[in-house]
Simulated assay, not measured.
Amino acid sequence: MKTAYVFPGQGAQFVGMGQDLYNLNEQTKALFEKANDILGFRITDIMFSGTEEDLKQTNVTQPAIFLHSVILAGALGEDFKPSMVAGHSLGEFSALVSAGALSFEDGLKLVSQRANAMQKACQAQPSTMAAILGLDDETVEKICAQVEEVVVPANYNCPGQLVISGSIEGVDKACVLLTEAGAKRALKLNVGGAFHSPLMEPAKVELQTAIESTEIKAPICPIYQNVDAKAYTDPAAIKANLIAQLTGAVRWTQTVQNMLADGAEAFVEVGPGNVLQGLVKKVDRKVSTSAAKIGE
């Protein structure tokens, strides 16, 4: 049976995440402690017993979700047998490490640099995102293109749910037009800025050098990347797509559709939460979805 392993992005975090993995055995504990050393602060303290507010800071959230996902995948041992992998935004880095394309250390360093670069870009220009529910993708794309301020489709999460991203004025104008066009809801999101939009260009420039100088190997199976939802195994192409990801859209709907077309029969979510299982079900209700669990 072809199994797709999928890795969540920002928003899946919760206080207490990873505590069970830390206590699992000496190997998992050592990885968490290594992460504390690499990051230069005890992220484990924030993950296990910090406040929700502390955990919500981009420079904490992204490495926290990455660590939970990657250490969980490693703890699955022989049970981790992916036919294909994909990750939602940040989750793409977790997927690459779990599939052997990136080392744990390099993956964590890149995720930390990515989070800090995104935080800086958010502070440089106030910006936001909004979830648009109940409209087809084409209508959302068309209306965003009509708005003169910066606003673009950013996350194609599932049919009927598309997140837009851009300047505050651009998103506000688009929300009004999209509601008039029949959207069930246009919901501003509580996020730090306009992720996956042209406003992330400074972060992309900053991260590009780091990605280019990091060794990426061929993964053990194809990775379906966010920017175009296609399957890749070539390290040079994987790098280029990772760089483009910060300003490009997360084409999750298309990723799931392509994995299904390529024979995926079951989807296993590796990391905190169950957001991706829900999104997969909205693409195809019949497909099997589950959360990765140790010892089952």
Rank of each mutant, 00 (worst) to 15 (best):
155 N>K: 01
162 L>E: 11
142 K>H: 12
65 I>M: 03
23 N>K: 15
156 Y>E: 05
10 Q>W: 03
168 I>S: 13
238 I>F: 04
274 N>E: 14
282 K>W: 06
42 R>V: 14
277 Q>N: 15
102 L>T: 01
28 T>N: 07
139 T>F: 10
84 M>D: 11
129 M>T: 09
108 L>H: 00
201 E>S: 11
70 V>P: 01
37 D>R: 15
24 L>H: 15
36 N>M: 09
223 I>S: 14
6 V>I: 15
55 L>T: 08
237 A>G: 05
188 K>G: 04
181 A>V: 06
173 K>D: 04
174 A>Y: 07
233 T>S: 09
288 S>I: 14
15 V>S: 03
95 A>Y: 03
221 C>P: 05
192 G>L: 12
128 T>L: 13
264 A>P: 04
5 Y>A: 00
55 L>R: 12
287 V>K: 07
22 Y>Q: 05
289 T>Y: 00
31 L>H: 14
149 E>I: 09
250 V>E: 08
269 E>D: 08
296 E>F: 14
108 L>S: 00
30 A>V: 10
209 T>K: 15
201 E>L: 13
68 H>F: 12
82 P>Y: 06
80 F>E: 01
275 V>R: 02
72 L>H: 03
250 V>W: 04
131 A>I: 13
135 L>N: 13
218 A>F: 05
160 G>S: 03
148 E>L: 11
216 I>T: 00
195 F>C: 01
45 D>E: 15
30 A>E: 13
226 N>Q: 00
188 K>Y: 08
260 L>T: 02
17 M>I: 07
201 E>A: 15
40 G>P: 12
24 L>T: 08
277 Q>G: 15
296 E>T: 11
47 M>K: 06
58 T>K: 02
130 A>Q: 09
102 L>P: 08
157 N>R: 07
296 E>P: 11
27 Q>W: 13
248 G>Q: 06
20 D>Q: 15
97 V>A: 10
283 V>L: 12
122 C>G: 13
118 M>T: 02
4 A>I: 02
214 T>N: 00
40 G>Y: 11
206 E>I: 10
217 K>F: 04
178 L>Q: 01
287 V>F: 07
285 R>I: 12
153 P>G: 04
104 F>Q: 04
202 P>Q: 08
183 A>Y: 05
32 F>G: 09
184 K>M: 07
163 V>K: 12
190 N>W: 11
214 T>M: 02
91 G>W: 09
192 G>K: 12
210 A>F: 12
274 N>M: 13
166 G>K: 07
122 C>H: 14
247 T>M: 10
124 A>H: 13
122 C>N: 15
217 K>M: 07
135 L>H: 13
231 A>F: 01
210 A>P: 02
21 L>M: 08
184 K>G: 06
220 I>D: 11
197 S>G: 04
22 Y>H: 10
2 K>Q: 15
194 A>N: 02
20 D>C: 09
230 K>T: 10
76 L>I: 02
265 E>D: 11
5 Y>C: 01
94 S>H: 01
95 A>G: 00
229 A>M: 13
41 F>S: 12
214 T>P: 01
227 V>T: 14
62 Q>C: 03
121 A>I: 01
58 T>Q: 03
62 Q>L: 10
68 H>K: 10
203 A>M: 08
57 Q>D: 14
